[in-house]
Computed example of a mutant assay.
Amino acid sequence: MNEHVLAAVRQYLDVHPEERGGLEPLLDLAAGTAPVASRRTVPGHVTCGAIAVGEHRRVLQIRHRSLDRWLLPGGHVEADDRTLQDAAVRELSEETGIPASAVSPMTGYPIDIDAHDIPENPAKGEPAHTHYDFRFLLETKTPGPGGHIDLQLEEVTAHRWVPASELTGRLRDKVTAVLHDA
């Protein structure tokens, strides 16, 4: 998986060379021997997120139970995930009930890689570390806004569909640019 991560980061940096500085630590981690997609790898590891676009170009967000924040569906890479995009699709399906068969990639690469710090969690025995979240833009054929979502209630308390223009920062700019060109 490290080689897959390296290739994805390099492809991403070809499009977004201005983000190289923030991703250098990830490149170093992926070039090492520790499995960069394992949640046990510190000081950082890869996670994957789904930017699920439904009807009327709205983006699905979930309310994360423990963080009590609106986020994109996503999470850690599992051993059975063949690719990072597979991990994003699996997480979307697990957290929302949207089947993988109802999802189509809108690009063949992550449209964003977000590096964010995770605080120490003594209850889980986890030191502070960094998540490098590979975010994939996925079109959902169903259920779309107003349709049925089957939330994984252990982790998620609610969902909503928001216009892409309501996303924040560089993610908004990247998503709206791809949707504009689609």
Score class of each variant (00 low, 15 high):
residue 3 E to Q: 14
residue 4 H to Q: 12
residue 5 V to S: 05
residue 11 Q to K: 13
residue 12 Y to M: 07
residue 12 Y to N: 08
residue 15 V to F: 13
residue 16 H to L: 14
residue 23 L to Y: 08
residue 25 P to F: 00
residue 29 L to P: 03
residue 30 A to I: 02
residue 32 G to L: 03
residue 32 G to Q: 04
residue 34 A to I: 06
residue 35 P to D: 09
residue 35 P to W: 04
residue 37 A to H: 11
residue 38 S to V: 05
residue 42 V to I: 03
residue 43 P to W: 01
residue 46 V to I: 01
residue 47 T to S: 10
residue 47 T to Y: 05
residue 48 C to Y: 02
residue 50 A to T: 02
residue 51 I to G: 02
residue 54 G to I: 04
residue 54 G to M: 03
residue 56 H to P: 12
residue 57 R to C: 07
residue 57 R to K: 09
residue 59 V to H: 14
residue 60 L to Q: 06
residue 62 I to Y: 07
residue 62 I to H: 08
residue 63 R to N: 15
residue 63 R to T: 15
residue 70 W to R: 08
residue 73 P to F: 12
residue 74 G to D: 14
residue 74 G to Q: 14
residue 75 G to H: 14
residue 77 V to L: 10
residue 79 A to V: 15
residue 80 D to C: 14
residue 80 D to I: 14
residue 80 D to F: 14
residue 81 D to I: 05
residue 83 T to W: 03
residue 85 Q to V: 10
residue 86 D to M: 04
residue 89 V to H: 08
residue 90 R to I: 00
residue 92 L to N: 02
residue 94 E to H: 15
residue 95 E to C: 08
residue 95 E to W: 07
residue 98 I to V: 05
residue 98 I to Q: 00
residue 99 P to E: 02
residue 99 P to T: 02
residue 100 A to Y: 04
residue 103 V to E: 00
residue 103 V to I: 03
residue 103 V to A: 01
residue 104 S to A: 12
residue 106 M to T: 03
residue 107 T to R: 09
residue 108 G to R: 01
residue 111 I to A: 03
residue 114 D to Y: 09
residue 115 A to V: 02
residue 116 H to A: 09
residue 119 P to A: 05
residue 120 E to M: 07
residue 122 P to T: 00
residue 124 K to T: 09
residue 125 G to A: 07
residue 127 P to R: 11
residue 127 P to I: 08
residue 127 P to Q: 10
residue 128 A to R: 07
residue 131 H to A: 09
residue 132 Y to E: 08
residue 133 D to T: 12
residue 137 L to Q: 01
residue 138 L to R: 00
residue 139 E to M: 13
residue 140 T to G: 10
residue 141 K to P: 08
residue 141 K to N: 11
residue 141 K to R: 15
residue 142 T to A: 12
residue 144 G to H: 00
residue 144 G to S: 00
residue 144 G to Q: 00
residue 144 G to A: 00
residue 145 P to H: 12
residue 147 G to P: 04
residue 147 G to R: 04
residue 148 H to T: 15
residue 149 I to R: 10
residue 151 L to W: 05
residue 152 Q to D: 12
residue 154 E to A: 15
residue 156 V to G: 11
residue 157 T to D: 11
residue 158 A to N: 13
residue 163 P to H: 02
residue 163 P to Y: 02
residue 165 S to V: 09
residue 167 L to F: 04
residue 167 L to Q: 04
residue 171 L to V: 01
residue 172 R to N: 07
residue 172 R to H: 09
residue 172 R to T: 06
residue 174 K to G: 07
residue 177 A to R: 12
residue 177 A to M: 10
residue 178 V to D: 10
residue 179 L to R: 04
residue 179 L to M: 06
residue 181 D to C: 05
